[in-house]
Design a binder for these strands. Structure first.
Length: 424
RNA sequence: GGAGCUGUGGCCGAGUGGUCGAAGGCACCUGACUCGAAAUCAGGCAUGGUCAGCAAUGGCCAUCGUGCGUUCAAAUCGCAUCGGCUCCGCCA
């Protein structure tokens, strides 16, 4: 969440930002509730001060009737406090819930716009692949080669589940390792994370685990959820800690399964591996000083580019429009790889996403560092996809298909797969 | 899953219901001594909120895993819950 003390001091800015993101947040109501909350809290603190004072008077020995009078006074204070505290906890919970819906500030250079199309392509790399034959999509290729099985996935687990099979299994593991090696080269500490996290962590990261529009699977009766990304578990790692400034930046990379409900995410773009309920992903995560986060954000993007250009894939980089930023994101860059089987004659499809969430998540999760002046400040937190195995697989299979339906393994992966071709 | 023990500040660790935001130690910071360092000595050293003040700072409130309760008063008593440890059972 943002700093609620800024609700008034940066009122215009917050209001404009909510508008630029096409969000529906009633800032004035939130401020009104904040006032109600503060007023009530003052009353309560007053009462508590009187209660404490009253209790202090009773420490030593005294006449029985004096003590009785003090006890009576204490009881009266206690009753009054109890009723006000009940009121307070209601308004406090309401205010917190509302305050959480206020999005992070946006980077001044982030393009302002409502949706996908308003995002800005800031870089193109490589030429979209053209074939002397009509290219197939990854579903046709994968099923024909018996390396992807969507039918069995649907039968056993439901729509949008799938089996990876035969050489695609080795290929996926090779891709994981390939991406991991590049990320490690840049000084990240590797993790395999839990695939489950507590709701409290989800909320701190900025995910909403509840409601019809939630993309998160919750596990009934446990207060936990299946993670949609390792961003959640890597970001929760340092919850409630004060980090040593000299330990920053902390760079982590985590491999996890990712589970997404994708309610209502149907249509032609969601066929096959592109939009699924479960996939594996290697995620990067950075905790750093506020003044470093812009630079680290660019570094995350550079690593993502290194990974995808290393596979010989054409892609473009997109600076995400404000309306398409998640609430915690201050700025977001996506890499969209060329996918020959997408749409009519190929299209770019999102394969990575990196966000600078500044102190938005750190404030909710209470992750801070002690600065040189002794003050404790919130760290900045950033995340980025190293490789989402399912979508990277789409790009790879479709770009490296041959006319006979076989797939050539890109040079950079051969040392990990041990074979250079997948064929029938 | 069953039984027992345990959870205190950055770390370790004391704590009889009221004088406990909490002894002591370590770490850290400042000063003295020293050419300098070590050792020693003196002092300082939790976080968040709020009010007053230009500020240094001061008042008040909250926090001893978390929640609820008992009480005029809770780190201290009770219940629940979560984490850790030990033993038993089960198991990749």
């Amino acid at each position: 969440m943002i700093d609620i003390r800024e609700l008034r001091t940066r009122y215009d800015e917050i209001k404009a930002n909510i508008q630029n993101r096409w969000m529906n947040v009633d800032l004035d109501k939130i401020i009104a509730d904040q006032d109600k909350r503060a007023e009530l809290l003052h009353d309560i603190e007053d009462l508590r001060a009187r209660r404490n004072e009253n209790a202090k008077k009773m420490k030593g020995k005294m006449e029985a009737d004096v003590r009785q009078a003090l006890i009576a006074e204490g009881k009266a204070l206690k009753d009054e406090l109890a009723s006000k505290e009940a009121l307070f906890s209601e308004i406090d919970a309401l205010f917190n819930e509302e305050a959480r819906t206020i999005p992070n500030y946006a980077h001044p250079e982030a393009p302002i716009g409502k949706e996908d199309k308003d995002s800005l392509a800031i870089k193109f790399h490589g030429e979209p692949k053209r074939f002397p034959f009509k290219p197939k999509d990854h579903v046709q290729l994968g099923e024909a080669l018996d390396i992807l099985d969507f039918e069995s996935g649907a039968k056993v687990a439901g729509q949008k589940f799938y089996y990876v099979k035969n050489k695609a299994v080795i290929l996926q593991m090779a891709m994981e390792r390939y991406a991991m090696d590049i990320v490690l080269k840049h000084g990240f500490t590797p993790f395999i994370t839990p695939d489950i996290a507590k709701e409290e962590i989800l909320q701190g990261i900025g995910f909403n685990p509840r409601g019809a529009e939630s993309n998160i699977y919750t596990i009934e009766g446990t207060g936990t959820c299946l993670v949609g990304t390792a961003e959640i578990t890597l970001g929760g790692y340092y919850q409630n800690t004060i980090l040593d400034k000299k330990d920053l930046p902390i760079k982590m990379t985590g491999l996890s399964h990712c589970f997404r409900r994708e309610a209502g995410g149907a249509g032609q773009y969601s066929k096959g591996l592109y939009r699924v309920h479960q996939f594996s992903k290697l995620e990067m995560f950075i905790y750093c000083l506020p003044e470093q986060s812009d630079d680290f954000h660019k570094q995350l993007l550079a690593i993502e580019e290194e990974i995808f250009s290393g596979l010989g894939l054409a892609y473009r980089v997109v600076d995400t429009a404000t309306g398409d930023l998640g609430a915690p994101a201050y700025r977001k860059f996506d890499i969209e790889a060329w996918m020959p089987g997408r749409g009519e004659g190929g299209e770019y499809g999102e394969v990575t996403s990196t966000s600078n969430c500044t102190d938005y998540q750190a404030r909710s999760l209470n992750i801070r560092y002690r600065d040189d002046d002794g003050k404790i400040r919130f760290v900045h937190m950033l995340n980025g996809t190293a490789m989402a195995l399912s979508r990277a697989m789409v790009a790879l299979i479709e770009n490296y298909q041959n006319e006979d339906g076989s797939i050539t393994i890109p040079e950079a992966l051969v040392k990990y797969t041990g074979f250079d071709r997948i064929e029938k």
